[in-house]
Computed example of a mutant assay.
Amino acid sequence: MGSPVRALTRSTLRRWPLPDPGNEADKETRGQVLVVAGSPEIPGAAILAGEAALRAGAGKLMIAAPREIAQGLALAVPEARVIGLPQARNGDLDAAGAQKLLQPLAAGVRALVVGPGMQDEARCVRLVNSLLPAFRHAPVLLDAMAMCAARDSSAFSQPVILTPHAGEMANLCGMTKEEVAADPLAAVRGAADAFNACVALKGAQTYVCLPGQPAWRFDGGSPGLATSGSGDALAGLIGGLAARGLSVEGACAWGVTLHARAGHALARRMGPLGYLARELSHEVPAQLRMLGDGSH
């Protein structure tokens, strides 16, 4: 199997050249992302993930969120088609009703992101499990509560990305957070194998691993990235890159790198702490250009 861990650097990104849509390409060529996210208490997560997907170069964006916050999201992200999902009487997402609205959209979607800002674990897991069969053709990124679908099911049989931090990894794998922190490489490799998924374990060092493959370690993070909403932006970046045609491993590698470089750019301009997650995606197009967007 080779070395158990490899350094993820600017030079190793060449393993996954970004698809070049060409000068004549339209928005369909760069792919459509569907972001299923948000809740009445955390509506902004859908904005952070959706905008990041577009900044990563995806051509079209759909956001699906609880009906009571849909209009606000539509005004906040005018580039997106926003779908209001039905809610139960207590305000939580109606998983069965959401499934009926979203499944017919699957054919046109090149990447699906589920979970940012969603709070009801049981309903979120039911929704994930109902959507996976319809989206077998597209990479599916599960974030936050949506990752619990991995814990409650057998290994995935389609391309899936999981993006846990140490606490979420501990919850998924039946470990303590301290155990994950003590050996993150073992944790990420074990999770990738157990769930048959590409896992990006976020932290001061971020590890990306496919089942049965050596992991990648990224050392270029910064303290300012540890802020509310940062993970939502990362999920959107990875989803946007997957929609453009990158493999799940390549989308994670590029997403992690762009996320960190955006943080460093903000730190140089504003200081190491205090920049906001909403500002990260604005830095991404310039970072894509510097890293050689579309190069082969």
Rank of each mutant, 00 (worst) to 15 (best):
I238R: 02
E68Y: 02
A265Q: 11
N171A: 13
D232R: 04
S154H: 12
G84K: 04
V284Y: 02
L185N: 11
P86F: 07
L75Y: 15
S130W: 15
P19L: 00
D143Y: 08
A7K: 15
A106C: 04
L258Q: 01
W16A: 00
G91Y: 10
P159T: 04
R126V: 08
L112M: 11
E28C: 10
G240T: 06
L13E: 01
A65V: 09
A182P: 12
A134M: 10
P86Q: 12
V77W: 14
A262G: 08
A65I: 07
C198R: 12
D232K: 06
D152F: 14
R217W: 13
H137R: 07
D143T: 12
A251K: 09
L73P: 02
A138W: 02
W254V: 02
G271R: 08
G255R: 01
A134I: 03
P223H: 07
R269F: 08
R14E: 12
Q103P: 10
A56Q: 07
A181R: 15
L201H: 08
A70R: 03
P17R: 06
A74I: 03
P78W: 05
V82W: 00
H259A: 00
R123K: 14
Y207S: 12
D143K: 11
R244P: 01
M270L: 15
K60V: 11
A265T: 07
T176Y: 08
L185Y: 11
P133G: 05
K202A: 04
A170W: 10
